[in-house]
């Protein structure tokens, strides 16, 4: 037909019909494929578990004496004279290496404040004359609810940073001109006074990549 120089009048109609028929067939085939979903959809989504709510917690990991008072909780741990005798400083015993022997009543205490045992004495901070208070080296007595004063007497730069808001945790309002709109955590909310180094913790899960990494890449990611 293409070679014929002058196509007859019927050729155009026949060609149109052929074209329409062909198109119809194509559309029918397409419809069939789409309804049967023959070439499939995107790869199925991988199952990503929701992150554990413990990683969303904003509460500090320790409670201070002040927190316990505020929450009206059990303060029996701070009732020193329930066991100790008044006006009689508790004795401190040392082992052969000049390290403090922790009495079994206080077995939960780890003496880890300061390297090289430089802070190897209970009465650097506790007041032997009145166990219900703490003492600063210059003789001042501070209560259990006012620890930054005590800690700051040795850790001056850190105390300065903490007062300026650059050390430690703050929550609430960034506008500090509004009194009472923000909360500044105290030293003992994060640091255990007997072992102040912050312990290691479990990290939240890493991102889930769209492509599941091969075992080789995975082992490279783990140290």
């Amino acid at each position: 037909m293409a070679t014929s120089p002058q196509p007859g009048p019927g050729d155009g109609v026949a060609r149109t019909n052929l074209l329409l028929g062909g198109l119809t067939l194509v559309f029918f085939a397409l419809a069939g494929l789409l309804t049967k979903n023959l070439w499939g959809h995107l790869a199925p989504k991988q199952n990503i578990p929701l992150v554990d709510r413990k990683f969303l917690e904003t509460t500090p990991w320790r409670q201070t004496y002040a927190d316990l008072v505020k929450a009206k909780e059990d303060l029996s741990d701070y009732d020193c004279y329930g066991c100790h005798e008044k006006n009689k400083p508790p004795p401190i015993r040392y082992d052969a290496n000049q390290k403090i022997v922790i009495p079994k009543e206080h077995s939960d205490i780890v003496m880890g404040h300061g390297s090289h045992d430089r802070n190897n004495n209970c009465f650097n901070c506790h007041n032997e004359a009145n166990l219900l208070t703490l003492q600063v080296r210059d003789g001042r007595q501070v209560g259990f609810d006012n620890i930054p004063q005590l800690c700051g007497s040795c850790h001056g730069p850190t105390y300065r940073d903490w007062e300026a808001g650059a050390h430690g945790r703050i929550s609430g309002s960034w506008d500090h001109t509004k009194e009472g709109q923000f909360t500044r955590l105290s030293c003992a909310n994060c640091h255990n006074p007997h072992a102040p180094r912050i312990p290691t913790r479990e990290p939240a899960p890493p991102p889930h990549p769209l492509r599941v990494p091969t075992p080789a890449a995975e082992s490279a990611a783990t140290p």
Binding site: L56, E57, T58, P60, W61, A164, G165, A166, H167, G168, R169, I170, S171, G172, S173, W174, D175, H176, K178, Q181, L185, C190, I198, R201
Partner: peptide, 27 residues
């Protein structure tokens, strides 16, 4: 609305600091 960002409030070690740089008293 005057509050700290969520990432700051959740940081367990206080490594994140946020504020108004035009306020000389801000952290």
């Amino acid at each position: 609305a005057g509050r700290y960002p969520a990432c700051l409030e959740v940081c367990p070690v206080g490594a994140r600091k946020f504020g108004n740089i035009l306020d000389p008293d801000s952290e």
